[in-house]
Amino acid sequence: MKNTTGLFALPARVLHWLMAAMILAMLFIGVGMVASVSERHAWLLRIHKPLGIAILVLAVVRLAVRLRYPPPPLPADLPMLQKLAAHASHWLLYALMIAMPLVGWAMLSAGGYPVMLSDSLRLPAIFPAGPIAFAVLRHLHSWLAMLLFLTFLAHMAAALYHGLIRRDGVLASMIARRRE
């Protein structure tokens, strides 16, 4: 199926902006909670786990939406290198939004922690408990978060570049303003 509307499908647009807010909040919650000894640490941690699982579920839905509704093609005159960067960064974002919650979940499992999403809702462990696996996964969680944040910054800068400099309809295709 080819996309001839010049727009992302409505479910893709809704998921994009909803998840943009969730993921950006999640990144700030994550770095904020591990850098705080105040009560902020406790309530940010309480949000972090269920929000992460919500992002995981939505990311899987979004991947299905992406495969079902192809995105509008990039402008034909976009330089090859920029096209490559666009595609690579999009798939990197998909990979990270699925990997981050899984690594977090596996990390808590490896640390022997009960994975509590609320006072009483507990997820099963998805990784055997062990200190070495915990340390590796815990560091991986931080490094992938940094990579996700940098990819997000590049993505946002690129979107602004398309919208303000090139004015080629790429940004418009995600905010649903049809090209003149």
Partner: peptide, 21 residues
């Protein structure tokens, strides 16, 4: 919350040493 946050930091340090990172 301070104990929770500091214990987590200590735990990461010692498990990282255990893992020879």
């Amino acid at each position: 919350p301070a104990r929770s946050a500091a214990y987590a930091d200590s735990y990461l340090r010692r498990t990282s040493e255990e893992a020879h990172l």
